[in-house]
Structure formats: C-alpha cells, structure tokens
Amino acid sequence: MKQFLEGEAATVAAGEKLGAIAAPGSVWFLEGDLGAGKTTFCRGFLRAFGHSGAVKSPTYTLVEPYELARGLIYHFDLYRLGDPEELEYMGIRDYFSDNSICLIEWPQRGVGVLPVPDIRVRIETSGAGRSLQLTSATARGEQMIKRVQAD
C-alpha cells in the first residue's frame, strides 16, 4: 500500500489512522532518511491511543514508553546505536510482548537482534510532501493492512 502525504498534518493523520488499526503485540519498523517524518508519523500513531502530549524521538535514550488507556507502546530510535548487541544489554526482548506495540525507527541498526516486523512503514520525501509505503511481513501485518484499506 502506498500513498502521498501532503505535509506534516497528513503524516500525523496517516499515523493516527494506522494507530487505530494496530494490533496488540505488533512490531512496526519505521524506515526512511533523517528528517523524512518517522517521528511525526509516531505522533499521529500515539494520538490514536489517546496521547496528547509531545512526542520526541528517543535518540539518546533509545526507547520512550507510553502507558496509555488502549495499551502500552514503546517508541524506539536506534539511530545512535553503535552495535546491535547493545540491544541485548538493555533487555530488548522484554519489550516485545502480546500486550505492547513497538514502533522502531532505524531498525536496520538492530539487524540480527530485532524480531521480524509485522509492518514496515517506509517514509520518503517526495516533492513538497512525503510518500508512505506499507508492507507486511507477517499474517498479523497483512490483516492490519487489509483493515486500513477497508476504511
């Protein structure tokens, strides 16, 4: 599934729409260049769960937890990760459960340690806006994409 997003508001809206169909236990990889809109997308995703505060990229802390009425979301930013092994030291596997959703920016920095994502979200700048592409890697991911296409 691919769509064009005209500006920041459209990126937030796309994140909110996808957050609304996100299944508990799902893993989302957020891919794209620096400044492409991954954190902006996360802001909308978290809005779907009732979060109204600021959303900053956890570049230095690696993970920002959000305990919300609809569930627990972990927002990871692996941009500054030196080695995927560092994820093992922080207990990365404990974050992935049937009760949480994990949003992971810069997942390529965690290759070999991270689980297979349910959905890959690729965001790229495109003219005055952004292009967003969703691909699924699991049956759960395929079901979520079907739900969003049905809306």
Rank of each mutant, 00 (worst) to 15 (best):
73 I>N: 02
9 A>D: 11
135 T>W: 07
129 G>T: 13
36 A>S: 12
82 G>H: 12
1 M>R: 12
116 V>C: 11
111 V>Q: 11
59 T>D: 07
125 T>N: 15
66 Y>I: 03
68 L>F: 09
116 V>H: 12
96 F>R: 06
42 C>L: 06
105 E>L: 06
120 R>A: 08
24 P>S: 13
3 Q>L: 15
113 V>Y: 09
91 G>M: 14
106 W>S: 01
80 R>H: 08
97 S>R: 11
127 G>D: 13
40 T>W: 02
28 W>L: 09
48 A>S: 15
149 Q>D: 11
51 H>I: 06
66 Y>N: 00
76 F>K: 02
117 P>M: 05
117 P>R: 03
68 L>R: 10
122 R>H: 14
5 L>A: 06
75 H>R: 11
89 Y>L: 11
122 R>Y: 10
111 V>D: 05
105 E>V: 04
145 I>S: 03
103 L>I: 12
124 E>V: 09
122 R>K: 14
122 R>F: 13
140 R>E: 13
76 F>N: 01
55 V>M: 12
49 F>H: 08
132 L>W: 04
77 D>T: 05
124 E>G: 04
74 Y>Q: 01
137 A>S: 13
36 A>M: 09
126 S>D: 14
93 R>L: 13
146 K>C: 09
34 L>M: 12
27 V>D: 00
58 P>A: 07
15 G>P: 03
35 G>W: 12
65 P>R: 11
43 R>E: 08
30 L>D: 00
74 Y>L: 08
43 R>K: 15
22 A>K: 03
140 R>I: 13
16 E>L: 10
5 L>Y: 02
12 V>E: 01
100 S>N: 14
87 L>G: 03
21 I>F: 12
139 A>N: 13
57 S>W: 06
87 L>A: 03
86 E>M: 05
50 G>V: 10
71 G>A: 06
139 A>Y: 11
12 V>N: 00
73 I>W: 00
10 A>C: 07
51 H>D: 01
57 S>F: 10
83 D>S: 07
41 F>C: 04
111 V>T: 12
81 L>V: 09
141 G>E: 00
11 T>D: 02
6 E>Q: 15
66 Y>C: 02
74 Y>T: 01
19 G>M: 04
122 R>Q: 09
47 R>Q: 12
41 F>I: 10
103 L>M: 15
100 S>A: 15
21 I>D: 02
85 E>W: 07
137 A>I: 05
150 A>K: 12
108 Q>F: 10
12 V>A: 01
53 G>S: 07
95 Y>D: 05
6 E>M: 09
151 D>E: 13
146 K>P: 06
119 I>W: 00
131 S>T: 12
22 A>Q: 01
44 G>I: 01
51 H>P: 04
